[in-house]
Design a protein around this nucleic acid. Structure first.
Length: 829
RNA sequence: GCCGAAGUGGCGGAAUAGGCAGACGCACUUGACUCAAAAUCAAGCGGUCUCUGAUCGUGUGGGUUCGAGUCCCACCUUCGGCACCA
């Protein structure tokens, strides 16, 4: 018998699909669309198992939905700007553009070898001028709307990548890409005002019903909204206003000191001429050397220094010392805080250390806190004391009462603050989208006029690794001022690559458009993405930025949707031997190896069968072999029974009425269809969908073992239907073997163009069902009963069952519970 | 410390609305075929015991219920996120 040979048949069908333009997608307003998207990769040149997993998931969905009748958009592209290309250039003298292009070609070949159903006509490559031109266009749109600004700020600097990083790109104090410890640098940088959208980014998380809860919570934490009050204190010595933010305005009368961030603008003036001046200056210098990350880590001890100045509490006129402290951040709130040691544990420890006053202003309902010195801060609720006219008010009410009172006097206002900071988008690197800004000594910074876009990234520069070659490229640097026409120079910073990936999913709708980023009509039809699939590592990077872009484009009237991704699937990681695959551990298995040894179908099947998509997966060579064995088993089932298919059409009209075995097989088929539909559509549980196909194949084998060839021949139309259905059900998971067997069975057109089957509830209906009999909740017997039995009949049969009877003897039946068609429970005493 | 997810056979995992715990697969055991092996096919496969049956069993301890892997309370362990955000 002919053996299953994946190596031979897989390339054959890949070519067939490509030549017949199987995966080309056209806009068709008469049909319902479905947009399936996997996060596009960085073209590193090599596909790893994580890629294989995410693409396999997406491909099953795309193929399944296509067979369900949707007009499916399933594109692929390249997040092609970024550091590795540039580093390869520095280390091996490669040309970043060529290096990237050859990596793309290599990866695309691997993707095609996996049998992925992409519409390659829509391929998007972010490092091509046709794409990054629209990055620049969008940058200018943000700029015109006041959402891009340049400011000098202390920013995260990765010494190894030689560039700045956004807050989201600092992970545990290190660079997200290379892990190097991030330093602190004062630089003038471009920022995107994502904080202007903080509220909407937070509130609209509620709309994302198809997102995993954990991702939404991560974004919520990252945005970190707190509502409170801004309160204005007065500096006693200078009369300056000192503004702080607090979420506990009810404790205002308990303030015993104030603390400023080392970078606070008032500090210089406050210490001038004081005995503490030099000491404070030294402290500030020291703080500026440390990054915000190390300075504010939980392990770092709080340090404070008296400035010599004092503040006047607007509530009671009290004079309290002003300190400077390492733990106060200039980048959050106003860069200054009030200290209430009695009601904040951090303040309490700080006050103990520096011997500052501790005054109770919220009394505990359980214990009078004013009686003895506190041993820890009281952060709970209670009634106000030592708070003038607010004494006796519950502290929750006092928050509003005190704030209202401050507002009346012009000493405060309600305020909402966020942990989220503006997105730093400039990078001091070469391989990225040039920021379209021109600096003129006479006119200042100016936007590059739209008709001059794209600002081309020059090629053929030599890269030294010391600094961006754009800085040294006279051709690039020197230009004319768009306002006065005089000599001017270009911005040499490029954009963070996350800028590119924040809208690429819209470009797929209209990838060749050269008048705009995309045509409204096409984006209106295809977007939003119905199902997005990717790694959890982008929970607050790409996924937050893309939501921000979408909301901005919505405000500009360019798109009609406010959220880019309807449903999100965060797929788990691929492990082997309990550890992440890595070269150093020597536990790497590559998609290439698997395709070579077993074929793409086996690899896809294993990766989908071994675990549900959102869970981590442990790679198992034995498991892969098991899946390969299953495909061979399917292969044999068909190849050995091809003669059945020859008879189709001849005997259809005189099919004898079905025997018990045929009915069972038919029921097994409909049960499998029902389960698989639910598993794919509602739950993404591909692992159980595949096990349902296995069960159906097992049922078919059982039938073939139990019946004679003559009998099978007389039922061949039914058997053909069952076998056809097996191929169709298998097609999204293992597309090549399915196509091969489909054609071998005598079909002309592709299996992937078949209509997906629906189950027939009538075929699923059974005449008799097995019912479990319990006595006091324990299974004591099973009976086969007609499904239309009444409750009384059921009970009677249960009671008289010989296995059950002994448990009922000399007992009183207290109660019975029946679940129709399933179970009877008799409660006895 | 705070927030979240998870904990089921030797292993990956299943049990979708509180109703037969362990589907499907792997590994293993036995048998058939074979000179033999591989492949394939068939059967078995949670623990314990007095083994045609009984009993225990879903991280631990309690609870709700006729009935709990599933719901509630407390705890343990593992993983992930946040971590002086005022």
């Amino acid at each position: 018998m002919e053996e299953y040979n994946a190596k031979e048949l897989e390339p054959k069908w890949q070519t067939y699909w490509a030549q017949n333009n199987f995966f080309k997608t056209k806009m068709d307003k008469s049909r319902e669309k479905y947009y399936v998207l996997e996060m596009f990769p960085y073209p590193s040149g090599k596909l790893h198992m994580g890629h294989m997993r995410v693409y396999s998931i997406g491909d099953v969905l795309a193929r399944f939905l296509k067979m369900r009748g949707y007009n499916v958009l399933h594109p692929m592209g390249w997040d092609a700007f970024g550091l590795p290309a540039e580093n390869a250039a520095i280390q091996h003298g490669a040309d970043p553009a060529e290096w990237t292009a050859s990596n793309i070609a290599a990866m695309k070949e691997q993707q095609n070898a996996l049998g992925l159903s992409y519409d390659w006509d829509r391929e998007v490559t972010t490092c091509s001028p046709e794409y990054y031109r629209w990055n620049q266009w969008l940058f200018l749109l943000f700029y015109k709307n006041g959402l891009v600004y340049k400011k000098k700020a202390a920013v995260n600097w990765c010494p190894s990548c030689n560039t700045v990083l956004a807050n989201e790109q600092v992970v545990d104090g290190g660079c997200w890409r290379c892990g190097s410890e991030v330093a602190w640098k004062e630089l003038e940088q471009w920022f995107l005002k994502i904080t202007a959208y903080a509220d909407r980014l937070l509130d609209d998380l509620k709309l994302l019903e198809g997102w995993p809860e954990r991702v939404k919570i991560m974004q919520e934490n990252w945005i970190g909204r707190s509502t409170g009050t801004d309160i204005v204190f007065t500096v006693k010595e200078t009369g300056d206003e000192l503004r702080i933010f607090t979420t506990r305005p009810d404790t205002l009368f308990g303030v015993t000191y104030m603390v400023l961030a080392p970078e606070h603008p008032l500090l210089d003036k406050l210490i001038a001429g004081n005995p503490q001046e030099e000491e404070v200056r030294e402290f500030v210098r020291q703080m500026r050397r440390e990054s915000e990350i190390t300075r504010t880590s939980a392990e770092t001890e709080k340090v404070g220094l008296f400035t010599g100045a004092h503040a006047i509490n607007p509530a009671n006129g009290e004079v309290v010392p002003i300190l400077v402290g390492n733990y106060v951040l200039m980048s959050y709130g106003t860069g200054a805080v009030m200290g209430v040691p009695a009601h904040d544990q951090r303040d309490f420890l700080f006050a103990q250390k520096y011997n500052l006053d501790i005054r109770v202003v919220v009394n505990s309902p359980e214990k009078d806190l004013t009686a003895a010195p506190l041993t820890e801060a009281y952060e709970g609720s209670g009634v106000l004391v030592n708070s003038g006219k607010f004494d006796g008010i519950p502290n929750e009410d006092a928050m509003k009462a005190i704030t209202d009172w401050l507002v009346e006097q012009g000493k405060g206002k309600y305020q909402v603050r966020y942990r989220l900071r503006d997105w730093l988008i400039s990078r001091q690197r070469y391989w990225g989208t040039p920021i379209p800004i021109i600096y003129c000594d006479n006119c200042g910074p100016a936007a590059v006029p739209e008709e001059d876009l794209p600002v081309m990234l020059p090629v053929g520069l030599s890269l030294t690794g010391r600094r961006s070659p754009l800085v040294d490229s006279a051709d690039f640097l020197h230009t004319k001022c768009p306002r006065c026409g005089g000599g001017a120079r270009r911005e040499t910073d490029t954009m963070d690559t996350f800028f590119c990936s924040s809208w690429y999913f819209m470009r797929y709708a209209d990838p060749k458009q050269d008048k705009a980023p995309f045509s409204k009509e096409k984006v209106d039809y295809w977007l939003p993405v119905d199902q997005y699939i990717g790694g959890i590592e982008h929970a607050v990077l790409h996924l937050l930025y893309s939501r921000f872009f979408t909301k901005f484009l919505y405000d500009q009237g360019l798109v009609k949707f406010q959220e880019p991704f309807q449903r999100l699937l965060a797929q788990g990681m691929v492990y082997k031997d309990g550890a992440k695959m890595s070269k150093s551990k020597g536990n790497v298995v590559t998609p290439d190896e698997i395709i070579d040894r077993y074929g793409a179908d086996t690899g896809r099947l294993f990766i989908l069968f071994a675990a549900p998509p959102e869970k981590d997966l442990d790679w198992s060579e034995r498991g892969v072999e098991g899946c390969h064995r299953f495909l061979r088993r399917v292969w044999r089932l068909f190849i050995q029974n091809l003669d059945l298919f020859d008879r189709v059409g001849k005997a259809t009209d005189k099919l004898p009425s079905l025997g018990q075995e045929e009915k069972e097989l038919q029921r097994a088929m409909h049960a499998a269809i029902k389960k698989i539909n639910a598993d794919i559509e509602e739950r993404f549980n591909f692992n159980t969908a595949i096990s349902a196909i296995m069960e159906l194949v097992n049922a078919a084998y059982s039938y073939f073992n139990e019946t004679t060839p003559e009998r099978r021949e007389s039922f061949s139309p039914l058997l053909c239907r069952v076998l056809d259905t097996i191929i169709i059900l298998l097609a999204p998971f293992a597309p090549h073997i399915s196509e091969e067997l489909w054609h071998r069975c005598g079909h002309e057109e592709s299996v992937h163009q078949q209509k997906w089957p629906d189950f027939d509830p009538r075929a699923l209906a059974v005449e008799e069902a097995e019912v479990v009999i319990q006595v006091n909740g324990k299974v004591r017997g099973r009976i086969l009963v007609p499904v239309d039995s009444t409750e009384d009949e059921l009970l009677e049969r249960a009671r008289s069952n010989e296995r059950v009877r002994p448990y009922l003897e000399e007992k009183e039946i207290v109660k019975t519970i029946t679940v129709p068609g399933k179970l009877v429970n008799i409660v006895v005493r």
